[in-house]
Amino acid sequence: MTNAADSGRIAKRFATLKAAGRGGFVTFLTAGDPDHETFEKILLGLPDAGADLIELGMPFSDPMADGPAIQAASLRALGAGANMGRTLELVKSFRAQDDDTPIILMGYYNPIYSYGVDTFLTDAREAGVDGLIVVDLPPEEDDELCVPALKAGLNFIRLATPTTDDERLPTVLQNTSGFVYYVSVLGITGTKAVASAEVERAVARLQRHTALPIAVGFGIRTAETVRDIAMIADAAVVGSAIVDCIANNLDEEGRPSDGLVDKVHDYVRELSSGLRS
């Protein structure tokens, strides 16, 4: 069986960025954080604030590869009634106004497995999802979701890490499409700072193995680092720092304070500012 054509949005976006001579900015936020309505407003304003690609975290009760910021975001979203169906609704509502910005769903396998792999792939594609990043599905488990996703016309974006050596890279890259996500630190999200010299070496190493665009994430928290990383790689990803911005604008009962949405957009604008000067 051959693969269905994907939406083309990811490839097109990276081509546009290349033509513009700049690196891309990827935002990560957990879908439904702090609640569905507030999140929808945040999501709809992200492209205008400078997001070139959007990663949407699928909330999970046990995010083993995430640090405290994204763990808390998952619990906030779930507490406010988030689930897979509502995450897909958010994508649909985004697509109604933006048909160009790629959306990548990121998370863990169990909520997808529970939803049903085939139904999930159909619904995700229909909602306007362009790609998937599933942290706990290494290439050894490709038959689970990766291969079916490619057949269904969704990109399957793989994480490469500092422990993925030259011998293993071809295995990791084999069924990867869209772009490669390089995890720049050994560890969980939002905990350590990246060292750009190491990232430069790692990106060069990846480029020897693949022609796909390379995005770098984990540990990027400032506009300056975004600019530095986006000069080395094709895009820089910021997650925990933006998620923290939501956490810092909640009242004692966890309700969004006035102006939270604008504050998140301002912060995203600031983070991406070095890319458009």
Binding site: M64, D136, P138, E140, L159, A160, T161, T163, T164, G187
Partner: peptide, 12 residues
């Protein structure tokens, strides 16, 4: 069973 872990752990 299986091996459902993050890539960082997979080589180990």
């Amino acid at each position: 069973g299986g091996r459902f872990v993050a890539e960082t752990l997979m080589p180990l």
